[in-house]
Nucleic acid binder design. Sequence first.
DNA 1: GATTGATGGCGACACTTTGTATCTCAAAGC
DNA 2: GCTTTGAGATACAAAGTGTCGCCATCAATC
Lengths: 225, 225
Amino acid sequence: MYSDGVPKLWNETIEAHRNSVREAILDATAALVAEHGPLSVTMSQVAEAAGIGRATLYKYFPDVESILAAWHERQIGEHLAQLSDAAEQPGDPSERLQAVLERFALISHQHIGDHSTDVAAFLHRSEHVAGAQQRLHGFVAELLAEGAASGDLRDDVAADELAGYSLHALTAAGSLPDQAAVRRLVQVTLAGLRPTDTPVEPSTRAAGKTRSHHQPHRHHRSEST
Amino acid sequence: MYSDGVPKLWNETIEAHRNSVREAILDATAALVAEHGPLSVTMSQVAEAAGIGRATLYKYFPDVESILAAWHERQIGEHLAQLSDAAEQPGDPSERLQAVLERFALISHQHIGDHSTDVAAFLHRSEHVAGAQQRLHGFVAELLAEGAASGDLRDDVAADELAGYSLHALTAAGSLPDQAAVRRLVQVTLAGLRPTDTPVEPSTRAAGKTRSHHQPHRHHRSEST
DNA sequence: GATTGATGGCGACACTTTGTATCTCAAAGC
DNA sequence: GCTTTGAGATACAAAGTGTCGCCATCAATC
């Protein structure tokens, strides 16, 4: 039937089945989270909603947290795919960056109520979850590094840190009422990324842990070009 | 009725006691969350950790979600107090704003691992929780409105939206390694708030005066991630 | 100072959820 | 046909949940 080069031909169909069941579990979980919140999700509910026996569920995931982690990974993965798509559109780096950030903001805005993006915050070992999240961060950081190299963006702060800034700032889109507001948010966020005439001072002061406000900046209102 | 000066003296001591027990519950919850994550917190564990009977716990809170909500409220309240303190320091509006934002960023940075600020994301009725969070948002929005009025900050975007932007952007401090990075983040965030020569309004660039198309919207959602 | 009333704390009970061990069955491979 | 492999359901012990009712305590009243 199949190519006999593969020793585990039977394994392929079973893998496909497991995958479909897994997807059903994740879908059911998403629905339950959207309805009752992540805290009240139980293995029993998930099993019933997914249409499988409860004991069977344990053959896929050991506990609720693992399910939520997997769900979160899937979500981020999908988002990352959309962002990659947006990044591949033609245009100069600045335009592409804007397209990516706007895409991300719109995704965040789309998922209000659904806690998919926020889930990472309360999974205990957030570091474990960091898989897709890391890739997302790295992806944005790379774009930002490009922009900094071409002079479109500020280079006085590491692209890594700017990526964190951007991603967090744009999650504010989840609280916004409409897409026009989302676009304004993207503009504001981008404004924070552009080169400044008052760059962050590198190290005029030694390593001190005092909190007190450092020297006041006199910033000019004109940010020409 | 002997002493009519203080009719409910008994009520005061009992209230004090209830408050202390309540604080103990919240402290115990915080410890449990820090150790095992919010998902695995149970009423039994909280009761034992707080040193009270489980049934007694139900006289204070009906379920885990309520406890987490109360804990979150307390945290935000404390943060708000610190921010108010920072805002009352002398200085011009711009300096005060920077002090407040830096304080907030440092608080976010301080609480890495502890999910106190992230909890709002997964409480089901986040709108219910929004009490202190709303005040925090309004507090920052007010500062931003001041800055916009004095010309130190951009006025092409509603202070309301800028507040959401700022608070979200600064939560990125939770992922930063040291305080120097936190200060850089504050600078980047502030850069997004300053006036720009390319305001967000699509048209209406005729005169130097911008018409505010956007009216302040009313409803918000969860604030932190 | 004894009684009454109201309130906090806790033991106990019935019920649900959890995690696992065991069993059955369907399909691939010989 | 017979064996093997693994998915899926049933069964059970342990833990968690929500509630009722009893007791101790303290304020207020006689």
